[in-house]
Design a protein around this nucleic acid. Structure first.
Length: 263
DNA sequence: TGACTTGTTCAAAT
DNA sequence: GATTTGAACAAGTC
């Protein structure tokens, strides 16, 4: 599932494959995925334009356009990007296809169609309107603590709340809390500055590591849950058994014997 | 076949 | 009003 590390690797992929090429053809299929724009405007804006640069905030990717503004991509559950050399190699579930004049195409794919495609002029204004918090890899320790310390909800829900800090999803929230030795239902306002400082440190450490390996779960073997969220696993720290529980309407996996419940 | 999955949004509750 | 909770949505997978 595309969380911050995946979106960052998508960003790099766009940088490496698709910048500065004139777009000669645009196809777009799923109108219910549009954000802030119409299909006609999207196609008109992209045709003859070039992708000129990239910017990521949380799980959002903004691709700067040479003629002004940005193409916005949100990946939902199943969004992905692909560059293909040949036209007839168009990937399955392509939502947006940009054909480059010289050669090749850029595709945004999304099998479950929960992602978003849009046009954004002013990125900061867009983020402000959404109410999104600072990016999880940009936020400072003090700002993180300020935003969290008076919250009366559980820590897992708070970490996934994009308005507090943007970028953490379900899978990495489980790992952050595992590394902290904190039960996902621990109350945020009971953790204290020390507790929150630890959450912050683990969040940054884990996300940075995941970014450094392009979110490849096979290269995160020093961690426990990424790519491996199941109940009944043996905990590598204490030998206990992992459990499943629904927390804040989301699946949570954790080790009840070494993740302390602070309530 | 239908239960299950998650990021986001919206309505309802506090 | 601000915060929190919970349900709804979409659709492919097993």
């Amino acid at each position: 599932m595309p969380e911050l590390p995946e979106v960052e690797s998508f960003r790099r992929y766009v940088e490496e494959t698709s910048l500065n090429q004139e777009i000669s053809g645009v196809s777009f299929r799923n109108e219910h995925m549009l954000l802030n724009t119409s299909k006609a405007k999207l196609v008109k804006t992209l045709k003859g334009n070039k992708l000129a640069g990239t910017l990521r905030h949380g799980k959002y990717l903004f691709i700067r356009l040479a003629k002004g503004g940005h193409l916005l991509l949100h990946f939902g559950l199943t969004g992905d990007v692909a560059y293909v050399d040949e036209k007839d190699d168009e990937p399955r579930f392509t939502v947006l296809l940009l054909e480059f004049k010289k050669s090749g195409s850029f595709a945004f794919t999304d099998s479950r169609q929960m992602g978003k495609v849009g046009l954004v002029d002013d990125v900061n204004k867009f983020l402000r309107n959404k109410g999104w918090g600072p990016d999880a890899l940009q936020v400072t320790k003090d700002e993180f603590i300020d935003r969290f310390e008076s919250r009366r909800t559980n820590i897992k829900t708070a970490l996934m709340n994009q308005k507090l800090v943007a970028g953490v999803g379900n899978e990495f929230s489980d790992e952050i809390l595992f590394q902290c030795g904190l039960h996902p239902e621990s109350r945020v306002d009971k953790l204290g500055r020390k507790g929150l400082e630890n959450v912050y440190k683990q969040m940054v450490t884990i996300l940075k590591k995941a970014v450094s390996v392009n979110a490849d779960r096979d290269r995160l073997s020093q961690y426990f849950f990424p790519g491996n969220r199941k109940a009944g696993l043996e905990c590598p720290r204490c030998g206990g058994k992992t459990e499943f529980k629904t927390v804040g309407g989301r699946s949570a996996y954790f080790c009840p014997s070494c993740q302390e419940l602070v309530a």
